[in-house]
Design a protein around this nucleic acid. Sequence first.
DNA 1: GTTAGTGTATTACTTGACATATACACTAAT
DNA 2: ATTAGTGTATATGTCAAGTAATACACTAAC
Lengths: 138, 138
Amino acid sequence: MLIVVDPHSGVPVYRQIMDQVKFHVASGLLNAGDELPSTRALSSELGINPMTISKAYSYLEREGVVERRPGRPLVVKAFETNQIHDNRINQLRESLAATVTIAKQLGIRNDEAIAVFRELLENEANPQAPDNEGKEQS
Amino acid sequence: MLIVVDPHSGVPVYRQIMDQVKFHVASGLLNAGDELPSTRALSSELGINPMTISKAYSYLEREGVVERRPGRPLVVKAFETNQIHDNRINQLRESLAATVTIAKQLGIRNDEAIAVFRELLENEANPQAPDNEGKEQS
DNA sequence: GTTAGTGTATTACTTGACATATACACTAAT
DNA sequence: ATTAGTGTATATGTCAAGTAATACACTAAC
């Protein structure tokens, strides 16, 4: 269980923790029944308040990733093998949701947005990623 | 120039105004040289503070959509037809880049990722603010 | 100069998200 | 009951975003 947080990243600490736990579960590093670090242990390790850990854990419990047992450490919840994949899809969905909002606000058509996404996905194989070619202004 | 705002949509009013002006410019309803409604006129029409309009106008000016003339109404700036649209696509590309990385890390196939994206785009009727996904619900 | 139109700089208020401190509740072992 | 481990409810503090009130600056026409 390796967890690292950056308080200056702009991403809330509790969310960084959530994301890393979910990622570890999705990737198989954490399995059903595994215990999560105690709030106080993780708290002193990361130098942040136990309540912040608790908040992350609570949201994870609400999302069904971990199981709550009063007075006992939280454990990763059991799930069907297929749910691992579903879990991954859900993470992707979460990440895409923000982009959808942006596309919507910008008035970009669905097929255009999808074309851009496809292009990026297929270009990811190439380590050369020329992203800015003089498009900037302001 | 039809502008409508909903203060309860979760999207900041100044941004709603920006989006609609940009959309009207992109769609050709507004052309180079056209004057925008005065801040006070739009203000009383929408029932919001003139400064909120001004803020929207200022950002539009910074983005190169309109032109500022002290003491005179703002006018739509002359621009290449596709300039603004290209700009939007670039914003979208930026937002999607992070998601592509996640998809690759999770080992999700391109067609799966695209399917999820398409589904979310077509579901855009979802009126909820996109930045909290497990927040208050008391 | 005066008037009436324009935009906006400055300041302050409101609100919500985030992180924290404190105190409490639960469990297991003694 | 006590102790030591666990998680967390509640209240408070901090900060940034969004909005608003006020006062100012500019232009054009008289």
